[in-house]
Design a protein around this nucleic acid. Structure first.
Length: 358
DNA sequence: CAGACGTGGGT
DNA sequence: TACCCAAGTCT
């Protein structure tokens, strides 16, 4: 149970909509002093901003920036932009190459949609990034949040945005006791967002709103004492907001996979077919439990994918005894390093290869 | 509208 | 450990 530091309100609450300009100014002034200096805030190139926004969908800043090793090289974002500095560069790349560049970020459909968007910009707009919010919104993988974010951050257009941060900030600011994960709730949030967006500096205002949700107005323990808009906040129990349906708990499942190495040290992998989860990604071949029960387990590991908590048992298997299925293929250790692979399989494989070579 | 879709960090 | 959840979108 978090202890909110909301408590004292030095002066009567000012309603944000009745004091709109004051609210915007307080937020923007705070951001200009305390805002963080992310790589995507150092550019107004709509392509770079789009790439950052797609990467940041349901993904924390620290993940996009990467661990310290990645961070030194600029993280996923800088590496991706270096690889694909413009839509045309990405349009010309293969899907496998792009998935590999996306490896570790998850939600791989985002990478395929971004590829499709890059091709659309290249071929339908002759490589020129669309200038209007509505044309941006029409691109694949871009919804109302991302269209508003790109329009405001790249073009300084006064477009509203509502993401998880903004939803939390507004639910507290307006003491919104209804669920936010419904059509009604979303409609209300977007209305407030449109009413409050700054016309004079939408770029800074939108950045500030999101940054506030990440810092003072965070999920677990809101820190209201130093909040730049505390005088506008209508909520006396900010830690209880926003209201939404409880997440469904993870279901536990078990998977069985093969670690099969032939006489040339090649390893058997399987490519996920079209229409399946993690389409286009390579992984250790999965098998029914009945097909692996006589094979020794060489490694067991756990991972979470969406709402499943998976225990993965990897069985060692003789190359002569294996029955190849339609998407199975042998790969040398050198080539498999360039294959797009989900993190759990990548980690397990690294461990097993290291073990085999020791 | 509910559920699917990945992963790593925080508590 | 176990669970929550984060710069959403699509079906």
């Amino acid at each position: 149970m978090p202890t909110p530091k909301h408590g004292t309100k030095p002066e009567p609450s000012k309603h944000p909509l009745r004091n709109k300009r004051a609210f915007q100014n307080a937020l923007i002034r705070w951001f200009e002093t305390h805002g963080k200096d992310y790589p995507w805030r150092q550019t107004t190139d709509p392509w770079a901003i789009l790439v950052s926004e797609i990467m940041l969908q349901q993904t924390q800043v620290s993940t996009v920036l990467g661990n310290q090793e990645n961070h030194a090289r600029g993280g996923h974002f800088a590496r991706f932009i270096a690889l694909y500095p413009c839509p045309r560069a990405m349009a010309e790349a293969s899907e496998q190459e792009i998935l590999k560049a996306w490896e570790g970020l998850g939600y791989y459909r985002r990478a395929r949609n971004l590829h499709a968007a890059a091709r659309a910009i290249t071929h339908e707009y002759n490589g020129v990034f669309p200038l209007s919010h509505d044309l941006i919104l029409a691109l694949p993988g871009i919804g109302p949040y991302t269209a508003g974010a790109v329009s405001s951050f790249a073009y300084n257009d006064a477009q509203a945005i509502v993401d998880a941060n903004v939803a939390r900030v507004f639910s507290r600011l307006f003491d919104f006791q209804e669920r936010i994960d419904t059509g009604r709730g979303q409609k209300q949030l977007w209305q407030w967002a449109r009413e409050l967006v700054s016309n004079s500096n939408p770029r800074a205002y939108n950045s500030a709103l999101m940054e506030l949700g990440q810092t003072h107005c965070s999920n677990r323990s809101p820190d209201c004492m130093l909040c730049p808009v505390r005088h506008f906040c209508q909520s006396s129990k900010p830690e209880s907001l926003p209201v939404k349906k409880a997440a469904t708990k993870a279901t536990r499942t078990t998977e069985h996979a093969l670690f099969c190495q032939d006489a040339h040290s090649r390893i058997l992998l399987s490519k996920e077919p079209e229409g399946k989860r993690r389409e286009g990604m390579w992984h250790l071949p999965r098998r029914q439990q009945s097909d692996t029960q006589d094979l020794p387990v060489t490694l067991s590991t756990k991972y979470t994918i969406t709402r499943y908590q998976v225990t993965l048992h990897i069985h060692r298997c003789h190359p002569d005894a294996v029955t190849l299925e339609s998407h199975d293929q042998w790969h040398t250790i050198e080539t498999l390093e360039n294959l797009p692979m989900p993190s759990p399989d990548r980690r397990a494989l690294e461990h097993l290869i290291q073990e085999a070579q020791a």
